[in-house]
Nucleic acid binder design. Structure first.
Lengths: 149, 149
DNA sequence: CTAAGTACCTCATTAAATAAGATACTTTTA
DNA sequence: TAAAAGTATCTTATTTAATGAGGTACTTAG
């Protein structure tokens, strides 16, 4: 019976995703240590790199910190040269946080080397399989982003 | 030219994986808040659930804490009823940390509901595609575990 | 049997985050 | 349009979490 096998497959995805996340959190802690910041600060840098820029309030959301907390995070990241506070032309109360090169490049380098390992792991899949993998991530990321909003 | 498309696909996997991890870290913070513990303590519970049991030193590794730090984490988790310290029959200096039901069930419930969402997202794939997805996670998880050891 | 090494714990100190405002602006409403 | 309500960020006193340095009890190598 194929539906039995299918149910097993789906359950296995669940377990492996949790394992993947536990490993990812561990990896994130390691990266933070390597570049000399804490995990919270790194989560902000990650969001910044993926989105290009963000307001303090958005970053507070992603890091689940109070706005007072994020101010201190940004003070640290600004002082360390990772980010810059630009005025927000749409709202004079607000600021736009942007990555600053080259401090940011340190982070890119670490992820690039990790991406190489990932590329190697992907080499055994054909294009159609790769498309399935991409599709899975895009779908779940989109669903996750909606849930958060 | 297919190799161009392939390179793009591989790069997209990289970006989407980072997005997935940023979302996963966010989700983890939310779960921690929901059950009333901090992110570090939850990372320990996650490892415990995936492995069944662990020693304090192993958990210190996964959470990148000092052994002194993990003692305090375990004190908190023990007090809150999530874990229990059993003697380690192989080494009398050591202890084995085990999940305790039903406090642990709170966590299971949250992940079960998340797993339902995941199952829904997976419903559009056929068995062969699911196998590709499982294979990808198993491969990268295994590679990650080796790197850590 | 001794010396070196490991596992866990303690506690004083440092670091990070919150809670509760305060300020400066924007949006709504009467 | 002027007041009221709401929002974005920042400040600071306080609480919470983690480290660093060391201690005890045990194990392993010589």
């Amino acid at each position: 019976m194929s539906s039995r096998k299918r149910a097993e497959l789906i359950q296995t995805v669940g377990t492996e995703v949790r394992r993947f996340l536990a490993g990812g959190i561990f990896f994130n802690l390691k990266v933070a240590e390597d570049i000399g910041i804490n995990a919270t600060d790194l989560q902000c840098l990650n969001v910044l790199e993926l989105q290009g820029s963000a307001t303090p309030t958005e970053l507070a959301g992603w890091s689940r910190l109070t706005t007072g907390g994020i101010t201190v995070v940004l003070d640290r990241l600004e002082k360390a040269g990772f980010i810059r506070r630009d005025p927000n032309p749409k709202d004079r109360r607000s600021t736009i946080i942007r990555p600053v090169m080259p401090a940011f490049a340190k982070l890119e380098t670490i992820y690039r080397s990790k991406a190489e390992g990932l590329a190697k792991a992907l080499s055994c899949y054909n294009n159609s399989e790769l498309e399935t993998i991409v599709d899975f991530f895009v779908k779940t990321n989109t669903a996750g982003a909606e849930e958060k909003g």
